[in-house]
Amino acid sequence: MFGRLARMDTTTYVFDLLKIILPALIVAGVIFFLIKEYLQKEQQRRLIEYRLETSKTTLPLRLQAFERITLLLERITPNNLLVRLSSAGQTAPDYHRQLLQEIRAEYEHNLSQQLYMSPETWGQVKQAKENVLTMINKAYHAMPTPQQARGTELAKRVLETLINEEVDPTAQALFSVKREAAQLF
């Protein structure tokens, strides 16, 4: 009889203990879940604030980079390049060298701007530079006697190539730069 009573007391004790522990565990679980949700929301809010603060700094830098690359592409466009660098009084080899040097210098001066644009757009810029260099090299090597020709003859050949191909070698890159810059807004 005493064993039965002890079992009943133990059973009652266990049930009473469960009556206390089970609601406490449920409340602790709910509190844990609520705190976890709050901390996640707080972290998201901080991340949004950080991105907003960062964009205040980086947006002007990115816009400046797009402006500089646009200027680079405009400066190496054959029409503008030939007008800016006069061929008067130069031999074709000297003028050829000057054109190539100017394109490479412009490009190297703006290499750091690739940090602010997508790899695809930067690839278009690199390709535009290569297209212009190729166009000038082809025009130079297509001359009958380039070593004896004048710089004006090379300039004329480059313009003829540009007209015959009917494609601006920098147009695609310029379009990509403008499209990406427009996505900032």
Rank of each mutant, 00 (worst) to 15 (best):
M1Y: 09
R4F: 08
R4Y: 11
L5K: 12
R7W: 05
R7L: 01
M8A: 12
M8Y: 12
T10R: 11
T10S: 08
T11M: 12
T12K: 12
T12F: 05
Y13K: 09
Y13M: 01
V14L: 13
V14P: 00
K19Y: 02
K19M: 07
I20E: 13
I20V: 13
I21M: 07
I21F: 08
L25Q: 08
V27D: 02
I31K: 08
F32Q: 03
F33Q: 04
F33A: 12
L34Y: 10
L34G: 09
I35L: 12
E37V: 10
E42K: 15
Q43C: 00
Q44T: 03
Q44F: 07
R45Q: 07
R45G: 06
I48M: 08
Y50R: 14
L52H: 10
L52F: 04
L52M: 06
E53V: 11
T58W: 01
L61V: 09
L63W: 09
Q64G: 05
A65H: 09
E67Y: 08
E67T: 15
R68S: 12
R68A: 14
I69V: 15
I69W: 02
L71S: 13
L72A: 07
L73I: 09
L73G: 06
E74D: 12
I76H: 08
I76P: 00
T77A: 13
N79R: 11
N80R: 15
L81P: 03
L82M: 11
L82Y: 13
L85Y: 15
S87E: 01
S87V: 04
G89E: 05
T91M: 12
A92M: 09
A92V: 06
P93R: 02
P93V: 12
D94E: 10
H96C: 05
R97D: 10
Q98P: 00
E102R: 14
I103Y: 09
I103P: 01
I103Q: 04
R104V: 06
R104C: 00
E106Q: 14
E108K: 04
Q113M: 10
Q113D: 15
Q114F: 14
Y116W: 14
E120F: 10
W122C: 01
W122V: 00
G123V: 05
G123E: 02
Q124Y: 03
V125Q: 03
V125R: 00
Q127R: 10
A128V: 05
A128G: 11
K129T: 07
N131F: 03
M135D: 01
K138G: 03
K138P: 01
Y140M: 07
Y140G: 11
A142W: 04
P144M: 08
Q147V: 06
A149L: 06
G151N: 02
T152Q: 10
L154T: 06
A155W: 01
A155F: 01
K156G: 00
K156F: 14
V158M: 06
L159G: 02
L159C: 04
E160I: 09
L162D: 05
L162F: 13
E165S: 15
V167K: 10
V167N: 02
D168I: 08
P169N: 01
T170C: 13
Q172H: 14
Q172M: 11
A173Y: 12
L174G: 14
F175Q: 11
F175S: 08
S176Y: 09
S176D: 08
S176P: 02
V177A: 03
V177I: 13
R179H: 05
E180G: 02
A181D: 06
L184E: 07
F185S: 15
